[in-house]
Design a protein around this nucleic acid. Structure first.
Lengths: 152, 152
DNA sequence: CTCGGAGTTGAAGCGCACTTCAACTCAAGG
DNA sequence: CCTTGAGTTGAAGTGCGCTTCAACTCCGAG
């Protein structure tokens, strides 16, 4: 045990991500694996870091497709350095800030509306298109893109 | 025009929600409508406020099912007062605070990891089960419930 | 060599929040 | 009356992020 590579089960256990999810990530091109003679996946230990980055990015609210693009921007040829990872993380920082800012605004507005009890679409800042927490990735739109906005 | 009730098209325009979504909300029991002799929906103007509450709640990260439960808790019989709406809004306030808190923690941790470049699953506070932004509603789990957590 | 647990695949299913479609009816102006 | 735009329905489709399943193979301990 404690070999240079990990089986899918080992990677799953260490990362907390189900094997089915890891295979899914691979299909999307987010992680890679060598194969044994018997066609089984063997993961380099560096893949652990990739998986960590994926899960963290999801918490930031980034879609798997965008995460893939980010990972694709890592230097090919050499193993990514801590600096490489730091650069990617910095890229999410802005999104996270914006997300937090908008939720903070929502909270303030909600407080205001709790005070006045208005919840009026026309007057309340809560329902202000253009200041919407738009398409932050993640599944069936959490954040209210205007209807048809993705086709416009 | 400017009648006591709204057609589905009018409600859609005023609320910014597509007619198909409004019909969907009705099927889920989130809003109600009278019917004309010709079976067309006519919405009381108070439904505007319900729709506003629905969209705001979604921004907080609440699922339609939970929103339905919240709306069901409104007093039946009388038209909800501003105080009634304020009470519902207050109920989301805590969720919003928690959401903001966890995102803030994620940001701080991310800053720390940008500094050290670690992204290590084992050591990094970023990947700390139990402190995960769990099941905040909304579609295909944005916030990383542990695999199988919804079946456990 | 045998056995069982771990791995493989493609296809299908799930949950959420909707949208789209076809086929039809209604309502209002000319 | 006729047309046109708006409304009606149920069924099916969409996108994301997976999970589940069936049918099969691999690998290592005994």
């Amino acid at each position: 045990m404690h070999e240079a590579t990990l089986t899918i089960g080992q990677l799953a256990e260490r990362s907390g991500v189900a094997p089915s999810a890891l295979r899914y990530y691979e299909r999307l091109g987010l992680i890679r694996a060598e194969r044994t003679g018997g066609n089984q996946r063997r993961y380099a230990r560096t893949e652990l870091r990739r998986v960590a980055f994926i899960r963290i990015s999801q918490q930031v609210g980034v879609s798997l497709e965008e995460i893939r693009e980010a990972l694709d921007s890592l230097p090919s040829g050499r193993t990514p350095t801590p600096d490489d990872w730091a650069a990617l993380s910095r890229a999410w920082r802005e999104r996270l800030d914006e997300r937090i800012r908008l939720l903070g605004k929502l909270r303030d507005d909600l407080d205001g509306c709790i005070g006045c009890g208005c919840l009026s679409l026309q007057r309340c800042t809560l329902y202000n298109p253009g200041d919407v927490l738009a398409a932050e990735g993640a599944g069936a739109r959490l954040m209210l893109p205007r209807p048809g906005a993705d086709r416009a």
